[in-house]
Amino acid sequence: MDKTTIICRCEEISCEEVEEVISNGGRTFDDVKRITRCGMGPCQAKICTSMVAEIIHQQTGLSPSEIPLPRMRMPLSPIKLETLATNSTSFSTVKSVLDEVELEEGKVR
């Protein structure tokens, strides 16, 4: 890998950008992700994980077993929003900001 090698194809993040995060104190894939967007694209870090781990290993000397894996999240592979929706219009955990405005004796608190 040289400085211009593309590590994250989805977000076009180069080796140099990943190295900069490590030199500023980042140590994990998720640190690199938040600063550079490496791994935030459609593939969700399926391609770049091991290359980022390799760079972290080279720069910090941490052994691969000490480098945590990125946090994988649902839905793992992109799916349409309508697949997740159930078309219910009753909400409990999800709030409306306006519902949180409380009136006291007909006035806003």
């Binding site: 799916i79 929003l81 309508e82 929706a85 219009t89 999800v94």
Partner: peptide, 20 residues
Amino acid sequence: ETANMAVRYVPGLRKAKIVR
């Protein structure tokens, strides 16, 4: 529930893909 809120507010999002 979040998906329901989003399609209620902006129905055009139905076909949008969720990556995370």
